[in-house]
Nucleic acid binder design. Structure first.
Lengths: 293, 293
DNA sequence: ACCGCCTGATACCCGGTGAGTATCAGAGCC
DNA sequence: GGCTCTGATACTCACCGGGTATCAGGCGGT
């Protein structure tokens, strides 16, 4: 009874995500029959039913759901082996720091300045991603460290160090009545007629119910706010990307947001450690945060 | 350029650990030539030199060291897929809780009692292991939750909840002069003639330098103390396993030890969550800890 | 220096198994 | 009842992972 192979995991994940053998086979670049056979073999090897084939579509069993989740992290881990080994191979490799496009702009700039002023620091490459993508990129070895935001991002499974605590602001279209307020509360913001809060995808990719538009990139959001179609509550430092016709108003009772630097455990290379140290020192010497300009 | 397969990872790990193709092949149950070929293919696929073969033995390159570490966690993750899926398959599966044999005995007993008194709690199976084995068992899916001890155990990559903070005691042979003291300090304990502190293996399996005997199981230790060959400083609650001819004396300036319950992130099943909740409530209602009986 | 001896690398053959093509078998749906 | 879409089955093929036999270089003992 030998171990699972990554091929089997990839096959299962494809079927579990597509819920359709044919499409999964296309996506994998193989024919459908071998795929059916592979899944069946997998099932009987594990002695567990993974899929309910009830004619007209496929559904995941409970065990299948568990396997889908576990297989995802396992495949990330395997991919990370390749990426990190390759990166360890070429010397003078840059560290890859991933962060949400538009977030923590000033902090990032100060961090890069700090690194640049250190003579022996490894070069750092910036990788910008969209909301919620950091964890995956960190897990599968595409990045070495990430800037993430508590309580928004999924920090499970990473080591972190706090860098910055800040309040949140409401971003409004300039011509909106609320834009003239000095400060706002969550209650005032959460139920504005004709200005619903935009909905972000959850960790699993689905969207919560609600009246607001579905978005998954910062630029979509910026555009929607400028058009007067939505408002949003974001960390104060994200105002860096606000448009001319945006107005930011502090939301006094919104929970604080902590910017953290995160890295995969068990992979604290000297270069990563030194970067984290630089970032932590940045925190110690940080100027007090101002929620108003 | 397809992904790595777990077979390749296992092969590499075997060679990297044995530092010898022949022995690695035996351990894998295959012949040596295919193994050589597989490693060579792996190297040229990654475009990275993993091993220095300099006639008479094999040495890991820097990239090889990275790969060995990463491959370990990846293989654990893959093994976890199988174990957890299988476990999810059979209903009424027990949760597996792993803890160091002999540690946190009373806490564990109270936890089990608390669980037993809850009508709808899943059955819990206890798995006892030796020092430092918990993390691996948790990572590879052999266990669902673990009792671990900060700052001794490697908690990287797990979610944890604190359960108990306690001081440490020195465990001495009954006939030793120090055994009559009411309390001790680290300075008194660390340099006792003819009674060196035993040495535990580090996370990588090697032993620190020093005069004390090398041990890796609790029973070895207990025996050595009873024989008057070593002393050790341990969490007060571990006194549960002390022998008749052991004497425990509080070490007033030793760092506190925190017993935590740990579980893999991303795998917070309802059963695990409920167990963690029970444990946390235990913490809230815990009687104040006494370092002396 | 010779000869074992131990290392890993090479050459070559074989068999299992993963993948392809063709086909079947239910279930919905006009 | 035919059409279509689903996934399962039957069969062949060839790739590649594994085995045996052998080579090649470095070290050590006498």
């Amino acid at each position: 009874m030998h171990d699972l192979e990554t091929r089997e995991l990839r096959y299962f994940v494809a079927v579990a995500e597509e819920l359709h053998f044919g499409r999964a086979a296309v996506r994998l670049g193989i024919a459908q029959p071998p795929l059916s056979r592979a899944i069946r073999q997998l099932e009987q090897r594990l002695g567990v039913l993974l899929l309910d084939r009830d004619r007209r579509g496929v559904a995941l069993t409970d065990a299948g759901k568990v396997m889908l989740r576990e297989a995802g992290v396992a495949l990330d881990a395997v991919a990370a082996v390749g990426r990190r080994t390759r990166r360890a191979g070429d010397s003078k490799r840059p560290l890859v720091l991933v962060t949400k496009a538009g977030a923590s702009h000033t902090l990032l700039r100060r961090l890069l300045d700090a690194i640049a002023s250190e003579p022996d620091a490894a070069p750092v490459e910036i990788l910008l991603c969209e909301v919620g993508e950091q964890a995956g990129l960190l897990r599968d070895g595409s990045a070495d460290v990430a800037l993430m935001h508590r309580p928004f991002d999924d920090l499970a499974g990473f080591d972190t160090e706090d860098l910055l605590v800040e309040g949140q602001v409401a971003l409004l279209p300039a011509e909106h009545p609320l834009a003239s307020h000095e400060r706002l509360t969550l209650a005032e913001v959460s139920d504005v007629p004709n200005l619903p809060i935009a909905r972000w995808p959850r960790l699993d990719g689905s969207y919560p119910e609600g009246p607001g538009p579905e978005v998954h990139t910062q630029s979509q959001l910026a555009q929607l706010v400028a058009l007067g179609r939505t408002l949003l509550v974001i960390p104060a430092s994200s105002r860096a990307w606000q448009w001319p016709d945006h107005v930011a108003v502090p939301v006094v009772d919104a929970p604080n947001v902590t910017t953290v630097i995160a890295w995969p455990p068990n992979s604290r290379s000297p270069a990563v450690a030194s970067l984290v140290r630089s970032a932590a020192e940045l925190h110690d010497t940080a100027p007090p945060h101002r929620t108003l300009p």
